[in-house]
């Protein structure tokens, strides 16, 4: 069953170094296809490191792999994801007449996706 969490988009130093090598490279694509999640939330959803999850907003959805973070580093209910093509799938185009779309603190529905090949 899907749970609603708060997604924070942002930058990371690994993303910064990998984009210098090229945004079409495997490392950049991998980094921008991973969401960080509180370990307690992951346990409650039956997720493990690299489990696939579907993130959904009213405008779109993306399937990403998850990585655990301890509660002291990432509170329950909060997700972090480096900006990239998949985070774009979740962003609405409304800027409230400011020019700026909202990319931090998005409400997203999170649900586990069975691994391919799993019965």
């Amino acid at each position: 069953m899907a749970q609603t969490m708060t997604l924070i988009g942002g930058r990371s130093s690994k993303q910064g170094t990998s984009l210098c090598a090229g945004k079409l490279g495997a490392e950049y694509i991998d980094l921008t296809s991973t969401v960080e999640m509180n370990v307690e939330d992951m346990a409650r959803l039956g997720l493990h490191k690299d489990s696939r999850v579907r993130l959904r907003t009213p405008v779109g959805e993306a399937i990403v792999r998850c990585k655990g973070r301890e509660t002291k580093d990432l509170p329950p209910g909060i997700l972090f994801m480096a900006y990239g093509p998949l985070s774009s799938e979740l962003m609405g185009g409304d800027t409230a007449a400011s020019g700026m779309p909202i990319s931090k603190n998005l409400d997203v529905e999170v649900e586990a996706v069975p691994d391919e090949g799993a019965s």
Binding site: K23, T32, S88, L90, M91
Partner: peptide, 11 residues
């Protein structure tokens, strides 16, 4: 590179 970080509708 807006195609990698703009909202979906803009891309």
């Amino acid at each position: 590179d807006p195609a990698s970080n703009f909202p979906k509708a803009a891309i």
